[in-house]
């Protein structure tokens, strides 16, 4: 396979990384809110959160993407397919992250929260200064594997016409009749990004050791 082809793939993987990164950030933020909603004693908050999580975890991402991509124009929102793709990925990962974080929030020791309560923290200070850092650290391994999952799932946005890594490989494969080389190269690039993300995750984990060996 020629360098030019490979460079095209590398360029397309930039879009793959960008789409995944944005989806991860949006998904994590939304997931935090949704998981807080799931844990709320208020049924008006917890029920919709639970349904949200159940739906987006229960439906294949491909179907979600097709649905969002085709639904948005019907609702009068004519957005580029990249936006629909990012929206779909974000919603899906938010559901998984919410479920992960829910477990994390439940594992924050009660006494640690009570200590903050005694120190006069207001609820939102307690949430952001105490609960979130501890829950985040507890769930970090799961959050990282979910981020890697999203990277791999981002290949599905090729079906709504976003020319990211998989779609680029597909286009080049059909024009050059070299599917073996191109898909193998694309797979290699996914692996590389994957390792990069895992490395970043380990770095983050080391930063959040909080003195433990």
């Amino acid at each position: 396979m020629s360098w030019t082809l490979f460079l095209l793939l590398v360029k397309a993987s930039g879009l793959t990384v960008a789409i995944s990164a944005i989806a991860i950030v949006i998904g994590l933020t939304l997931g935090m809110v949704v998981s807080a909603g799931m844990l709320s004693p208020n049924l008006l908050l917890s029920m919709p959160s639970r349904v949200f999580v159940s739906f987006f975890r229960g439906v294949p991402l491909l179907v979600q993407l097709l649905l969002i991509y085709n639904l948005l124009p019907l609702l009068g929102l004519n957005v580029p397919s990249v936006v629909a793709a990012v929206a779909g990925l974000s919603l899906c990962t938010a559901a998984y992250q919410a479920e992960n974080l829910r477990g994390g929030f439940l594992s924050v020791p009660r006494g640690v929260v009570e200590a903050a309560d005694m120190a006069g923290f207001r609820p939102f200070q307690l949430f952001w200064r105490i609960r979130v850092p501890i829950a985040f650290k507890l769930t970090l391994p799961a959050l990282v594997s979910e981020a890697i999952m999203i990277l791999k799932s981002s290949s599905l946005v090729s079906v709504v016409g976003v020319v990211e890594l998989t779609r680029m490989a597909q286009d080049l494969a059909s024009s050059t009749y070299k599917p073996l080389d191109l898909y193998a190269a694309a797979g290699g690039l996914y692996l590389a990004i994957n390792w990069l993300m895992a490395g970043l995750g380990r770095l983050l984990e080391r930063r959040l050791r909080w003195g433990r060996a």
Partner: peptide, 22 residues
């Protein structure tokens, strides 16, 4: 590691479109 590190879709393409070449 290869199978877990790459998208399922790419694996399918490799198998379905690349397979005939081998």
């Amino acid at each position: 590691e290869l199978l877990r590190g790459t998208p399922f879709l790419v694996q399918l393409f490799l198998l379905y479109f690349g397979g005939p070449f081998i």
